[in-house]
Write a protein that binds this DNA or RNA. Structure first.
Ligand SMILES: [Mn+2]
Ligand SMILES: [Mn+2]
Ligand SMILES: [Mn+2]
Ligand SMILES: [Mn+2]
Lengths: 218, 218
DNA sequence: AAAAAAATTTAGACAAGCCTAAAAATTATT
DNA sequence: AATAATTTTTAGGCTTGTCTAAATTTTTTT
């Protein structure tokens, strides 16, 4: 049996280790889970014991295949529930994360597979993140941040990096959402702000915004 | 903040105390929750401290209004999720209870009220039990057990007392479900079995079955 | 009204997760 | 290469919810 707390650790470690092959360190995990490094050390030993990850003292941890499998399944559940909340229950994209954080721990194969079917097998969640299928497979769409974009090119918004309520509400209030077309007009070297044309409207977004908005060439 | 364990105790006490005004005793609670009497004593002290119930040493407990409110809200969530599972996700009535047992603890006002609306404000769950509305109000339909029925009268099946998978599957295999018409042909004094006519078919059900099937005069 | 049986509470212990403070190891700086 | 700073682990303790065994109270039986 795997506990809710163990699941949260595994998911956090998965997200922290997603890019790059190097080990995930204690402080990063403590930070992600709002807990203390000493607590992480304790838990990491237990997870290693249970074979969800490999732990090397003072070095960090790496999920095993077993651990990755658990993690991807939790991510699948999290994102499917988010789709459900937005598509069926009138939640906005800034409201879903907190509730999905709890729903992702409900354990029922049938529940999640039927939910998947009920939602007609969505491939992406409300924030543009890919949804793993029943076997854990998914493909990341090629995307860059608006920060990495090129002047003169038109892009489509395909995701957000920061999923905080604050950022999502900012985007809402500026009529930017998934699918929105964005033409890059100018990139200001001084403060790295980006001038874009959204529909017919010109607007300037800060470096912070540009770095948290994923776009794809049209 | 109320913990998952506390919620389960409160719900169990609510169901045990539903009929009759007398106090719920320690062993009954321990039994319902598959735990030990000593654990119940501990928890009951804590719940009393938090004002969810009144506890009199060696006498038993009674939920306060605050406790009842919590309980009814959990029951509401439990039953709405059961409807969702059956109506939208192709669960059968014998599969829903276990999953709903977990879903009932998800804390989000918006979630449950939107779910209620999405399901078009159902009044009863898949087992015929009434669903409290947003304010905790619900009405029990007048019903008796088949055991209490009268020979010669035709009834409609409106609920089940035992919601175990075994019993529900037995009913399925005998084509008895909510809404099924049942005419009482004979009540056998020797073993309290009941001979009924379901559609055009005569069949005999045991005392055990008769005591767990709720019916209503047509 | 005792004595016996049953129900309930108390005492003491344990696992899971968390914390703070101190010790040890690693990494960065001089 | 030595010292300083940072990171990580260890040690010891706390809370929640559980358990077993023993003590106490209530209820039932004689
Ligand atoms: Mn979570
Ligand atoms: Mn998401
Ligand atoms: Mn429950
Ligand atoms: Mn039910």
């Amino acid at each position: 049996m795997i506990t809710l707390t163990e699941e949260n650790y595994i998911k956090a470690i998965y997200h922290l280790g997603k890019y790059g092959k190097d080990m995930v360190n204690t402080n990063a995990i403590a930070d992600a889970l709002n807990t203390k490094a000493s607590s992480v050390t304790d838990m990491v030993k237990k997870l290693s014991e249970k074979d969800y990850l490999n732990y090397k003292k003072y070095q960090g941890v790496l999920l095993t295949e077993k651990g990755k499998h658990i993690a991807v399944n939790i991510v699948r559940k999290h994102r499917l529930w988010e789709v459900f909340l937005v598509d069926k229950l009138n939640f906005t994209w800034d409201e879903v994360h907190e509730v999905a954080e709890h729903l992702e721990h409900i354990k029922s194969e049938k529940l999640i597979n039927e939910l998947d079917a009920f939602l007609e097998f969505p491939t992406h969640d409300p924030h543009g993140d890919p949804i793993p299928d029943k076997d854990g497979n998914f493909k990341n769409i090629e995307k860059i941040t608006l920060f990495q974009s090129i002047v003169g090119v038109t892009y489509k918004c395909v995701g957000v990096k920061d999923t905080s309520s604050n950022f999502l509400k900012y985007l809402d209030s500026n009529s930017i959402g998934l699918g929105t077309s964005i033409e890059v007009i100018h990139k200001e070297p001084f403060d790295n702000s980006v001038k874009i044309k959204r529909d017919t409207i010109d607007m300037v977004v800060s470096q912070n915004v540009a770095k948290n908005l994923y776009v794809k060439k049209l």
